[in-house]
Structures are given as structure tokens and as C-alpha cells.
């Protein structure tokens, strides 16, 4: 679009100011994480006495923060949950999109309705149910509930309904069964959508706070998010250098995901909005 230069300048300035506002807290986060506690309130963005001591004491064995354990818990549950979601949802989406069986429509409507149920409505019964199974404070509690979300089934359902019928028919002529059709056609063709689903599930589980807060109780079963929150209101509540170092550490997987899977994540967000 043709525009006079000064208009371009204003638009560019809006975006630059906006981006600085987004980035500013990170600069302070990093700066404080590398400052000794005595300098935390000195108001300088560039640390006067840069140090790694905060990270060392956050990671030190025997500190009340079991940071590596929390990170491990978060990564393990996020990875296992997203693998499970990818497999379960892909199978179900193929069945719903391409096969016919009794009750298919009912199941579809049930899943659509379930998308409207807010998490808070199932929080307490889910907690009581897992308590009954003896699964509270275990990896079971940190993984299993995430497999029930119908979001991924719909994401893949929409993708699979757009795959041309001819591919499937050719495979049927070759004598392939339903499972082989799924494995040889739908699974590989669906990789972009499934990868997006996997990334979104991973971030969702890694970032979840409310459920792991109630589902775990022992320090060693906490996840990264809950651990950071407990340290923030507990031992680190006045020591911002330590709290910021811990926060930076907790963001490492997020940074990595952002660098390598930014496109998948944005794709997932965009399709969420456009397909609804």
C-alpha cells in the first residue's frame, strides 16, 4: 500500500515502542538474575558486579529448591503427555473423519460439547477421582488428565477430512486394511498438523500451573511452574536475585521451543482461531 513517509514512520514507531514494552521485562529479568542480592535494587540495567552466584545457589543440592528434579518432572510429563495425545488423537480423528460406525455422530457432538467445559468445573472431582486411584502426587496424575482434551481430535479431524478420498481408495484396491491406511497414509500426511498438536500440548503441559498445584504435594513431585511459585511466595519472596535466576532457568525449555518450533506454535494458534 502506498503511504507517505511520515505515516510509515508512525506505524514503525508504534511497533518499536510496543516491542520494547514486550522485551523490557526480560532485560530486567536477566539483569537481576546476574546481580548479587545487594545490587538488586540499584536501578541499573547493566549489572555492576555480574555474577553466576545466583544460579549456583539456586541449583545447589540441598537448597529447598529441587530445581533439576522439578525440571525433570515437567519435561517428563510434558513429553509423555504430548506423545500420548498425538497417538490417541490421530487414531480417533481418523476413525471419526473417515470410518463409519454406530454412534459416530453422537461421539462427535459429545466431544464438541466437552470443549465448552471449563477446567475449574472438573478440578475437584478429578482430584477426588485420582485420590481414589491412589494416583495423586505421582506421574500418573501429572500426565493422564491431559489426554482427555478433545481439542487435538478436532484439529486432526479437520486436517484428515481434507485429505483426498482417491489416496484411500487406491490403498483399498491394493488390499490395505484400515490400520494400514491410517499408518501409511493418514499418519504421514498428517505430520504437520500432528507436530503442531504435539508442540502445543507440550507447551500446555509444561506451562500448566493450576492442576499440578493441586495434584502434587511432595517437594520432589512438584513441577517447574509450581516450584517457582512456591519459592516466589516462600524462601525467595524477598531475594529477587535468586527468584529471577530461578525464573530464567525455568524458561530455558520455553526459549528452546521458541527458537526451534516458533512456526509450529504460531501455526497452531492461527489455525485454532481460523477453524473455530
Amino acid at each position: 500500500m502506498k503511504m507517505p513517509g511520515w505515516k510509515r514512520g508512525i506505524i514503525f514507531a508504534i511497533l518499536v515502542v510496543g516491542s520494547l514494552f514486550m522485551v523490557f521485562p526480560f532485560l530486567w529479568l536477566l539483569s537481576t538474575a546476574f546481580k548479587p542480592e545487594s545490587d538488586a535494587f540499584d536501578g541499573h540495567l547493566i549489572p555492576g558486579h555480574p555474577t553466576f552466584a545466583n544460579f549456583a545457589s539456586v541449583l545447589a543440592p540441598g537448597s529447598s529448591a529441587e530445581v533439576l528434579r522439578w525440571l525433570g518432572n515437567s519435561l517428563l510429563s510434558a513429553i509423555v503427555a504430548s506423545l500420548a495425545v498425538m497417538v490417541l488423537d490421530s487414531l480417533a480423528a481418523y476413525g471419526l473423519a473417515r470410518l463409519q460406525f454406530f454412534g459416530r455422530k453422537v461421539i462427535l457432538y459429545l466431544l464438541i460439547a466437552s470443549l465448552m467445559v471449563p477446567f475449574i468445573a472438573v478440578l475437584i472431582p478429578l482430584y477426588l477421582e485420582l485420590a481414589n486411584f491412589g494416583l495423586l502426587d505421582t506421574y500418573g496424575a501429572l500426565i493422564l488428565p491431559y489426554t482427555a482434551n478433545a481439542f487435538g481430535v478436532f484439529l486432526l479431524y479437520q486436517f484428515y477430512t481434507n485429505i483426498p478420498k482417491e489416496l484411500e481408495e487406491a490403498a483399498i484396491v491394493d488390499g490395505a486394511g484400515k490400520f494400514q491406511i491410517w499408518r501409511r497414509i493418514f499418519l504421514p500426511l498428517g505430520i504437520p498438523a500432528t507436530a503442531t498438536l504435539g508442540m502445543m500440548t507440550f507447551m500446555g503441559v509444561y506451562n500448566d500451573f493450576f492442576w499440578p498445584l493441586v495434584a502434587t504435594s511432595s517437594n520432589s513431585m512438584r513441577t517447574m511452574t509450581v516450584g517457582v511459585a512456591l519459592m516466589a511466595i516462600g524462601p525467595y519472596s524477598t531475594n529477587y536475585s535468586l527468584l529471577m535466576a530461578l525464573t530464567v532457568f525455568s524458561m530455558i525449555p520455553t526459549f528452546i521451543a521458541f527458537i526451534f518450533a516458533q512456526r509450529q506454535l504460531m501455526q497452531g494458534v492461527a489455525t485454532t482461531g481460523i477453524n473455530l
Binding site: 510496543g18 514486550m22 506451562n207 517457582v228 511459585a229 525455568s250 521458541f258 506454535l265
Partner: peptide
């Protein structure tokens, strides 16, 4: 720049 904060966890955001 605008997208990055939305993939952070609630606790990192609130700590910062």
C-alpha cells in the same frame, strides 16, 4: 517479539 510472552508459564510471568 509480541508472540513470545504468550508461550511463557503463568508463574514465570508473575515472578517477573
Amino acid at each position: 517479539a509480541f508472540f513470545f510472552p504468550s508461550i511463557l508459564s503463568a508463574t514465570s510471568v508473575m515472578a517477573v
